[in-house]
Amino acid sequence: MINSFPSVKRRRQTNQAPGPKEEVRANVKNFELQKNDKYYAWLFLGPSFLVLGIFVFYPMLRTLYLSLFLTDSFGRPTVFVGLQNYLNLLTSKVYMASIQATGVYVIGVTAFTIICGLLLAAVANQKIRGIEFFRTIFTATMGVSVSVSAIFWLFMFNPSIGVLNQIALFLHLPTVNWLTNPHWAMVSVITTSVWMHLGFTFLIFFGALQSVPKTLYDAADVSGASSRYQFFHITLPMISPTFFFVAVITMISSFKSFGLIDLMTAGGPTNATNLLVYRIYKDAFVDGNYAVASTESIVLAIIIAIITFIQFKLLAKRVNY
């Protein structure tokens, strides 16, 4: 469908032409390692191996090790229990609820951030008088830290004197327990998180929209394509790499959501917003149960590895052009 536009076709062709990658490969073949070079290789790689070993691989292996033990009040592994911790965790209803909540949160935040960011970017991309002002406003959330936005939203969500419930009272609508009702709490933290991600997402999408060649739209106008058709068949395909980028970045960032949860709900009410990362923190550093926290860390690492794999397999293919 994109092929109806000549300039896009040209781009595809240039992409398929033999690129610099082949040249590099050829050079590598000609380059043979000599014994002396091995010494240099170790010299140069050694420091980074050392740093990675101490700060990445050792903690990872230690986590794996701890997850196979019970730890005492001081975090020392004392009783070997094999895979019992994993078994307990995966049969725990509370943990499964946590996984589900994380899924809802990550998908919710990613989807709404992309939709809202794209909408704002599309609006800001129009030539309207004074739009520069709004472009600045839309990016404003980038400059707001997690703690500030959490506190700001907490004020709005306050059940008795918060502005949201005051508006509801004024309009004779029922008030909502934004952060104390398990269902609404999730909605509330997703809203806050989307709001926080919006500035950055908007900026990226806006940049992408600006870089779509105008000639494409001119050609479409000549062929009489509607603006909706243009959006779905020119704009979206042209910004698809950005789309992929934003999806991955937002997903990763919402998976890591910690400050927001800690400040707004602390995982409550009734564990409704006890996301996987927050849970690990709570189990390790609040409850002092390192074995359970280690087990959860390993499970989370596996989950993230699977998701990343799927993302690259699925989404990378959808980058159209």
Binding site: P159, S160, L179, A266
Partner: peptide
């Protein structure tokens, strides 16, 4: 009864509500 949930926010919110005569 009004439910303010738990944690630091709850105690801050209930105090704010109490001091402003809503509780």
């Amino acid at each position: 009864f009004i439910n303010f949930g738990s944690g630091g926010n709850a105690s801050a919110n209930e105090a704010a509500s109490f001091l402003s005569g809503h509780l």
